[in-house]
């Protein structure tokens, strides 16, 4: 059997984490290629249904990453995101979806190395956790 490679969908904010991801790329930092980035204007606009859809469609984890507390371009979007992630974790954990599969991190625009580390750490964590049920299972 082929070794399991996780697919991770990442919703990153335009102002901080996307810029950090760009920096990590231009600085040629080493990172696993398992993450599919989706650039949002703010983590506060990551609708819970985007996360649910990604997980049902077979993403092994969802990463939401934005500005550090206090740094949000829209003042408090990241605090709202934190409550939504908490809510999603509470809902999904009952259906056997490990809370580690919905991850929220703060990565500032200048923290390219932090972004690469976050990605590498998450990929390793999900490799250990194994594939999500919906990778094989058709659930819509």
């Amino acid at each position: 059997m082929e070794e399991f490679e996780p697919t991770i969908v990442a919703f990153v904010c335009n102002w901080c984490t996307y810029t950090a991801a760009d920096l990590a790329g231009t600085a040629r930092m080493t990172q696993f290629p398992n993450v599919r980035l989706i650039r949002m204007m703010c983590t506060g606009m990551v609708d819970p249904k985007y996360v649910i859809k990604a997980l049902l469609a077979g993403a092994d984890a969802v990463l939401i990453s934005g500005c550090h507390p206090g740094d949000c371009h829209y003042i408090n979007g990241n605090y709202k995101a934190r409550r939504r992630v908490k809510l999603l974790q509470e809902i999904l954990t009952g259906f056997g979806i490990d809370t580690r599969r919905v991850k929220l991190t703060w990565v500032g625009a200048s923290e390219g190395n932090e972004f690469a580390e976050t990605v590498n750490h998450l990929v390793n964590e999900i490799r250990e956790l194994g594939p999500i049920e919906t990778r094989e299972l058709m659930v819509v």
Partner: peptide, 15 residues
């Protein structure tokens, strides 16, 4: 709950 937030809360969510 989803209409409010606090600056420091749910730190388990962000490791």
């Amino acid at each position: 709950p989803l209409s409010v937030f606090q600056e420091k809360e749910f730190s388990e969510v962000t490791g």
